[in-house]
Amino acid sequence: MRIAVAVVGALCAGAVLAQDAPKGSAERGKKLFVDLNCYSCHGTHGQGGGRGSEPPIPLGYPWAGFLQQLRKPRLDMPAYEEKLVSAQEVADLFAYFSSIKAAPAAKDIAKLRTF
């Protein structure tokens, strides 16, 4: 496990691109996101809920970083090990994250312009 993490870290440092992700299904990922309760901290649209839990939407960083965050989170996020969330499932989650459309710009939302 330690070695795996080191390898992922090294990959991450090498800025592996999203294309390197195993093929995932955004639809399955969406369901997993709720079943695994990711949405309780991140919101169904990745909008977050405080304590630094807002992932950049649309996903602005590579597959390896995503995998690393799940297997060995940076700070306080729970870890999701291989035996609980398979590589394929992580790929599905990644596909879902990548499919979330960017939010409209605040200036284009009338009810946010009132602030």
Binding site: G43, H45, Q47, A103, A106, K111, T114, F115
Partner: peptide, 27 residues
């Protein structure tokens, strides 16, 4: 501006985002 940008995330989400709810109530 950063706060408003963050509030826009999930603006059209259903169930309703807490940012949207707060913006609706303010308006």
């Amino acid at each position: 501006e950063r706060t408003k940008t963050a509030a826009a995330l999930g603006w059209d989400a259903s169930p309703v985002s807490t940012a949207r709810l707060s913006a609706e109530l303010w308006n």
